[in-house]
Design a protein around this nucleic acid. Sequence first.
DNA 1: ACAGTGTTTCAGAAAAAATTGAAATCACAA
DNA 2: TTGTGATTTCAATTTTTTCTGAAACACTGT
Lengths: 202, 202
Amino acid sequence: MPAKPKKPDVVARAQMIEAEDRFIASWGRMGSVWGISRTMAEVHALLYITGTEMCTDEIMSRLGVSRGNVSMSVRSLLEWSVIEKVRIAGDRKEYYQAEQDVWSMLRAIARERIKREVDPLLDALDEISELAPQASKGSSTEIQDLQQRIEAVRDGFSIITTLSHKFAGPRGAGLQTAAKLLARAPIGRTKKHGSKRGGTSQ
Amino acid sequence: MPAKPKKPDVVARAQMIEAEDRFIASWGRMGSVWGISRTMAEVHALLYITGTEMCTDEIMSRLGVSRGNVSMSVRSLLEWSVIEKVRIAGDRKEYYQAEQDVWSMLRAIARERIKREVDPLLDALDEISELAPQASKGSSTEIQDLQQRIEAVRDGFSIITTLSHKFAGPRGAGLQTAAKLLARAPIGRTKKHGSKRGGTSQ
DNA sequence: ACAGTGTTTCAGAAAAAATTGAAATCACAA
DNA sequence: TTGTGATTTCAATTTTTTCTGAAACACTGT
């Protein structure tokens, strides 16, 4: 048990819990917006923000959700590789711990989202492009236009996917370095949100 | 009225409709995954893939959805600036037409998604960071760690937002050029999906 | 094999989100 | 201003998604 350098007073402790809860709530809310179940996002937030490994029961009681829900959420998070199992000697329970490196985490999230949100669309577009009447010299402009529009979308997403795979690949600092690198290149202009603290820094 | 170079035969015409419907269905399905109402995505898909300006009733009957739903969807799409109103002389109805440039469209989508999915989180994180007990030399490691974790997430998203604003800004070919530029830089490795046709081409 | 823990599954319940449809509102020509 | 047709709004409804809880299952030590 690591020594507590200074025992935080009761007030600070309460504030910490409050801040954690708010973080969990915000992350959970975003989860919904991202098409992820709120609980799944909350479990992740809890493990990340506390940095502690926790077992099912601890998660259940802290978030006030059912065992089944925690079980399902944990499974998805493991698939996403944003948390991992931890075994604790002399304890039969499974403990879970969040990836603590933010960029690893963001890459993992990006990867999963591409997988869910872009790949299926690309597959569908390929299929549709084949199904549609083929454009050729003799085709009506309608047919040519249709093919051209499908192709345009397909190519756009294809480029985005390629890019993402480079940046969000599980190994390497792709996203991080790219982001930092590109953040300085003057392609456009930054907008607000540079308010508090270092912010965009670098 | 532009001449039809070759009147497409009935079969080709049917195939076109079929392809359009499939495109609409796929885009709609993705809409759900993206946290957008299915109808909103379908309306956009319809306007994009046909390239035609359409009025409320045409959209209603083609998609088989209610007037109210079309009205709401159209309003959102206008806010997203992925479609625009068109007035047709001597007609009292409003017509709508989709942005036809794919990169403009993708940039608009990216912009809106950042607005919905990242900005509120950044704001929340700032607030939480203030609310949490402030770290200082005398603080317990718990407090320092908490602040450090909040900060880490904040900075990550902050960089992503900055980047996105550069790439997805309404004017300029930010995303397109960046994508093309970066697509060749060997940061990682590409994976599948280069199957049919030009693919990632350029 | 079995007792004791811990985990997963899944049908039904609850909650959230999307959609309808009709009344209210608007916009414009006469 | 009034009449007409188009559009918007929103309470009620339908559909979809998420969550619960308890039974089934799995693992481990005896």
